[in-house]
Amino acid sequence: MKIHLALLISLLLSGCAIGAGKSMPYEAWRLGFGAPAYMEVWIETADVVDIQGHIFKRAMAGIASIQTPANNRGNPRGWPKRPGWGKGKYVMNADLPRLIYVRWQSLVEPQTYEAYIEIPESVRAIMRKGEKAYCNADDKWITDYRKAIGIGLAPGGIAKAWVLGPCLPPIEIARVEATVDPRGPYEGKSGGRHRPLSGISKAYIEQFGIPYGSW
């Protein structure tokens, strides 16, 4: 935790030296979260530090995008070749990200994790670059941007991140192994009680278990 705190402080101090103008060619970028089928998570908070040094607390919170097909027909192993944007929202009034902190409850274990995902300049360069792309929805060629960061959260504290655009293929940018938050759920304020797991996910876990090592 001390190392993580020192990292956050150093990023904030270095970010404060950057000018006030936004560095991206669009109004806002989007932060979204997903989870493998049945592997339910609850995001307590996802905080963002942008390259100006501004902090956006709870830029995202709540449930992550997930599929829970009936009769155990889903497959939680691995990640899709084209991950979606996930459940989330645009980080309004922010410049491009420098650091994303996420604390979440893995309900199938249950366990509480926290992870720090650093966004290097090489990724921000991808997010600034416009590319010609064909959009099936509009049936035309456009100049598209990868203006979203999608993060997958899996049991064992695995967090994987991609940058993607509406009509452009995703690019993997990070895989992080989170640490267990020793305070437990809700920073120790819930008496160790995690949010409940849904019946359909519980039934899958009881029959097939958690496919650790596949993410």
Rank of each mutant, 00 (worst) to 15 (best):
54 H>F: 12
187 E>V: 08
190 S>D: 11
45 T>G: 04
171 I>N: 09
33 F>Q: 04
152 G>S: 15
200 I>K: 08
50 D>E: 05
92 M>Q: 09
151 I>W: 00
54 H>C: 13
82 R>M: 13
211 P>D: 02
82 R>L: 14
4 H>E: 02
153 L>K: 06
28 A>H: 09
2 K>V: 06
169 P>I: 08
167 C>I: 03
207 Q>P: 08
58 R>D: 15
145 Y>F: 00
18 I>Y: 15
215 W>Q: 03
185 P>T: 02
183 R>E: 04
82 R>G: 10
102 V>I: 06
74 G>I: 00
48 V>P: 00
36 P>L: 00
35 A>M: 10
7 L>P: 12
160 K>G: 10
83 P>D: 06
125 A>C: 07
106 S>D: 15
85 W>Q: 01
76 P>Q: 04
113 Y>N: 13
119 I>C: 13
126 I>K: 10
199 G>Q: 01
30 R>H: 09
7 L>R: 15
123 V>G: 08
123 V>N: 06
203 A>E: 03
212 Y>T: 05
120 P>R: 06
174 A>T: 14
59 A>Y: 08
87 K>T: 00
47 D>L: 10
182 P>M: 12
202 K>C: 05
61 A>R: 07
110 P>E: 12
158 I>D: 12
148 A>I: 03
3 I>W: 09
176 V>H: 11
173 I>Q: 00
205 I>Q: 04
74 G>F: 01
215 W>Y: 03
171 I>R: 11
160 K>V: 14
